[in-house]
Structures are given as C-alpha cells and as structure tokens.
Amino acid sequence: MKNIVLTLLAVSIIGIANAQTGNERGLKIAKAAEKADVGFNSSTVSLKMTLKNKNGQTSERDLTTKTLELIEDGDKSLIVFNSPKDVKGTSTLTFTHKVGSDDQWLFLPSIKRVKRISSNNKSGPFVGSEFAYEDLSSQEVEKYSYKFLEEKGSLLIVEQDPVDPKSGYTRRVVTYNKNKGYRIEKVEFYDRKNSLLKTLTYSNYQLHKSKFWRAGTLNMVNKQSNKETRLEFSNYNFDANLTDDDFTQVALKRAGN
C-alpha cells in the first residue's frame, strides 16, 4: 500500500516536473522569439486587407501602420485607414502595456475628434475582418502562459494560454521556426468552448536589416464560418527613425488629416 502511494507520488512529481519543463521551454521559446526581434526601433508598412465572406465575395481596406518599439513597456502603434473612402483618415493610436489594459485613442476625421476608447473589447472583430483586436495588438510575452507541445525538425509548437479573461480564446497553438529567427509560421486559435475557431498562416517572409523576419502575407481562415481575411504587407521601412513624438494625439490628428 505504502509502495503504491509512494509510486503514485513519484509519478505525479515526475508529471509536475515534466509539465514545468514544458512550461519553461514554452516560455523560453516565446522569449527567444521576442529577443530575435529586439532592436528594430521603429517601422512603417502599408497593408492591404482583403475580407472574403463564405460566398467568396470580397471587400478591401488599405491601411498604413507605424510601430515604435519600446523595451520596458509594450510597443506604440499608429494605424491610418486610406480606404474605403468613406472612412479615409480614420486612425487609431495604441499604447500597449505588458501588464494591464492598453491605452487607445480614435481619430474621426469628419468632425476632427479624438476620442479615448476602451480597449476592453479584445475578442471583437477589427473592421469586420476575421482578425480580433487581440490578434493585431502587440504580442508581449507577459500576455500568455506557455506549454511546449512538440518539436518537428526546425519547427517548435507551443501552446499559449491568454492571461486576460477577456480574451476570446482558451488557447492558441503557435508554430515557431527556430532556424529562421523564431519567426511564426502558423497559429491555431481555439474558442472559449475549446473548439478550433481560426487558423492563421504566415507566408512570403522577407528578412529585413539581416535580422528581422516579416511575413508578406497573413491569411486568417475562420473554420466555423468559412470566412477569410488576408493581410498583404508592402513597403516595409525600418529606417523611418520614428520617435515618441510620432505617437502622440497631435501626431494622430496629423496622420488622419
């Protein structure tokens, strides 16, 4: 009897230890991916978003995005809509925080109003697309807990569980490529009922400044509704030398005008 208890205890300790190494390895990979991307300082990029409904009808949006890298806290970003024309100039300024909710402002060009908006809505769709707000916000290591799943050649598969209860996901399964600066190749999103909701594939990768991998195409497929959203990035610029002054409410108004 005693032996059985001891054996059970030993087995469960090994199990916990395994789980811990799994957690640690997952976190290590996420940190390695973050580290591989440190030092880009700032970037600008043009983005074409193509939304496809289940009947194959498409609609498009054009945006430009500016990003400022911050080390101590989350990144800052400024997004400007160029099309559809009725929303041209609509812009958002986001200060991501590693811990706590993000700060976000919206500029409405028709009445020139800047409005602080709640960043509470993480799971909602971004402009009718298959991307939720949380999919597009700066991916900080602190926002998830990790579990290493498997290694397939150079691919490392890690489960990420969102820390924020407002997230629309129970977990994400992320495929990293360790030979290519830990760039992400694929993400699977599981909804709150733990069924597969969406898959996101990264393709047309390019290496910028011989360090930073950026995908040219992101394709998000909703497995439950069969809708799709494709993001195509062009004109990446890592030499814009942006500063905090380019990420203020004054700059937000200027960008949207």
Binding site: N121, S123, G124, G128, G168
Partner: peptide, 12 residues
C-alpha cells in the same frame, strides 16, 4: 458603457 461582441460576431 459598451457591451462588446455580444453575439460573438462583432455586435457592440
């Protein structure tokens, strides 16, 4: 006060 993404389809 905003109830967001009520129908899991984006309705706020």
């Amino acid at each position: 006060y905003t109830f967001s993404n009520i129908d899991k389809n984006g309705l706020d």
